[in-house]
Amino acid sequence: MGLLDARISNRNVLVTSVDNVMNWARLSSLWPMGFGLACCAIEMMATNASNYDLERFGIFPRSSPRQSDLMIVAGTVTMKMAERVVTLYEQMPEPRYVLSMGSCSNCGGPYWNHGYHVLKGVDRVIPVDVYVPGCPPRPEALIGGLMKIQELVRMEGLGVTRQEALKKLAEKSADPQQVIEQTRKATA
């Protein structure tokens, strides 16, 4: 469904919609904000580094929220940090995306009951587009989450709200169990 799947004529002319070109450009250069909060940040850094090399997806961290498209909330969000996270989110230019990485930022994680200082899910203060489960998630899982963000970008277009795009994305999603079984059968 990507832009490069569109037909290219023998004169190197590509006919497609503006939405398609815009979305291709945006999803091919998702710049996350370079900040980490806890151990998930270590996995995020590992994903950025040479072994997993996020730069092959055009993803590389920026030092300022004003240059970022994406916020990866990697780690435990404390009550003290929650307000700073909101400030950083507000400083990001639209369209902006939020990926919640790991159990802590998804729902409080191991601090859900006795962690008086921990925000029980970053979605209590900012809207989250994609949740990546894990404690911490492996780099593969983070890359999976980032590719979900790319899919979300693909669903967007002129006159399509974020809510509609998220709904379309949810409709497109497949039950992973079926996919796993199909793949197993195919390889067997």
Binding site: M79, A82, E83, G108, Y116, L119, R124
Partner: peptide
Amino acid sequence: TYHGIKVPY
């Protein structure tokens, strides 16, 4: 609550 944010789970 803390600054309008719910604290308990």
